[in-house]
Design a protein around this nucleic acid. Structure first.
Lengths: 131, 131
DNA sequence: ATAAGGGTTCCAGTGACAGGAAGGTCAAGG
DNA sequence: CCTTGACCTTCCTGTCACTGGAACCCTTAT
């Protein structure tokens, strides 16, 4: 399979697949013409990577997960630890964003949004709230 | 005020303040020794920027907000539009993260996390779920 | 022979800084 | 007067995970 086929099959852009090779996540063979020659295992790995990335795992996490995936002597505890660490990060991000959302929504609600210059949003950013 | 004082007062790292000058968000004067000489207005702007960034506004948004902040002929509608656009982005991020969280949490729950190699997390990433 | 549609490499840019090197400046203490 | 240490300066590189584009090669069909 050429890179275009693998891109279609995996849903990843060809650019991304080349990048994954560059950083050593996959090692496709090469044909006589210099083209990458992907085997099924490469395709599986790319699909795996695509799903892991879609769940927000970092490339470093993906590398570890892929290694565990290929290691028959892994323990599920190792995998679960990575996943839980990532879940914690996701939760932290959701918390941060929710707090931002709360503050921002309050400012937006307070703002008339008309053609006058008075704006509680700018006041809030400038900390010029009237007592 | 020197950059260190302003950094303490605004809560922004000196590196960030230099960066904000570099991209034209602030224009502090310079003393005879080459040091940046910050006035109160610079400090206010930096505090404004710090709060806008803490709400997740992009630098581009911050630039626009700062411009509106200094423009007496602004309308609150302009400000509100920027803020609502950003709120939409935050909501989209929260939705994405929540969906990731949902999927990931399900996988984690299904994983024993013991010393055996069987792992629903890896299976899920590899799409090898038993029917 | 040529044109379209693959593929290849390499370089630059993204956003918003952070780290660090090399060197100038300032105030206090010996 | 000199040194020490804490500042300040600029400049360069690195981050993360790609994306865009240039310049060029290969394959297949007409």
């Amino acid at each position: 399979m050429n890179i275009g086929d693998v891109a279609k099959a995996s849903g990843l852009p060809a650019k991304t697949i080349r990048y994954y090779e560059e950083i050593g996540l996959i090692r496709p063979q090469r044909g006589a013409n210099g083209y990458r020659a992907f085997r099924d295992t490469d395709l599986h790995k790319l699909a795996f990577l695509g799903r892991a990335r879609a769940l927000g795992f970092s490339i470093a996490d993906c590398r570890n997960l892929l290694q565990l995936y290929e290691d028959d002597s892994r323990t599920s505890a190792e995998v679960k630890e990575i996943a839980r660490g990532h879940l914690d990060e996701i939760d932290a991000k959701i918390r941060d964003l929710s707090e931002m959302r709360r503050t921002l929504a309050a400012l937006i609600t307070a703002c008339a949004g008309d053609n006058r210059p008075d704006c509680p949003i700018l006041d809030g950013l400038a900390m010029e709230q009237p007592t």
